[in-house]
Nucleic acid binder design. Structure first.
Lengths: 145, 145
DNA sequence: TCAGTGGGTTGTGAAATCCAACTTTGCACG
DNA sequence: CGTGCAAAGTTGGATTTCACAACCCACTGA
């Protein structure tokens, strides 16, 4: 996707959700905010940039734009399956921010359906063991263009 | 951290690693590339921007810059614990890109120490069940400033 | 009639990015 | 000695993106 650099799905993913404000907009939408004004307020993004980002996300199939009122026409943004699949990534990012960037107690806390406060952990789907930097190695790498 | 918008560790995390090229540089460094020229080539980032990003990441404690040769002075970039903790996030991002963005087979494949090709999965550290959008809910939210 | 709401678009100026070329410190070769 | 090469950036100038406030349109409710 990127013209130069390694061919890699991380780059592909970032081409869709890596621009400024995209992930914060997604955060709000996954929190249940679906209206443009509310997303703008809660992210702090300027309205013009936010409009562009939401269009990109809709075009990429991460969100859909749904009319919820005909007169006057009003729209809301709803996550697709691809959008919902970003929830774990956002939670991991939040956890990383809590641990290594933010000072003080976590501003946001999530609960898992099991009843515990959520601490997200990435595991190998095959064996269930946590994924660490030492425990993984690349088998095949994309070529550098 | 952000001036406006919801106080949130996702925003804090993105302030450190959310700028263009940061995560791709991290990808290369976690792949073992530690030299400026090589990181520049493999990401496709222009050298001036890359230099600024690496400085930011060093200042944030995600990388350290280590002299590996005195005459002439040469430096390499090594991930800190915070940097290594981003590996799971990058793998999740890659998986998302493989599934929802890239066409064709995954360009990069990782192997877990258990022997299987890695499919990363985010679980609740308490109960071990996979984290899905429906299975989590916010208990406390950061205020919107 | 007049203010308010939702969902944007427009204009303008500031900031970030891109690209190519250049710099610095040294080594190796002929 | 002079030339070439490498690593790790820095510099200048053009281009692109972003930020901010203002505006627009279609309604609603008082």
């Amino acid at each position: 996707m990127a013209v130069r650099g390694r061919q890699c799905s991380i780059a592909d993913a970032l081409a869709v959700i890596g621009e400024k404000w995209s992930l914060l907009a997604l955060r709000e939408i996954l929190l249940g905010e679906r209206r443009f004004d509310q997303i703008a307020r809660n992210t702090g993004a300027s309205r013009d940039i936010l409009a562009t980002r939401l269009r990109t996300l809709v075009d990429a199939g991460v969100l859909t734009r749904r009319q919820y009122e005909a007169h006057p026409p009003r729209h809301e943004y709803v996550p697709t399956e691809a959008g919902r699949a970003l929830q774990p990534i956002l939670l991991n990012l939040m956890d990383w921010g809590d641990r290594y960037v933010a000072e003080g107690p976590p501003p946001t806390v999530w609960r898992h359906s099991c009843g515990a406060d959520l601490r997200p952990q990435t595991v190998c789907a095959h064996c269930g063991e946590p994924v660490t930097e030492e425990g993984v190695s690349p088998v095949r790498l994309g070529p550098v263009r």
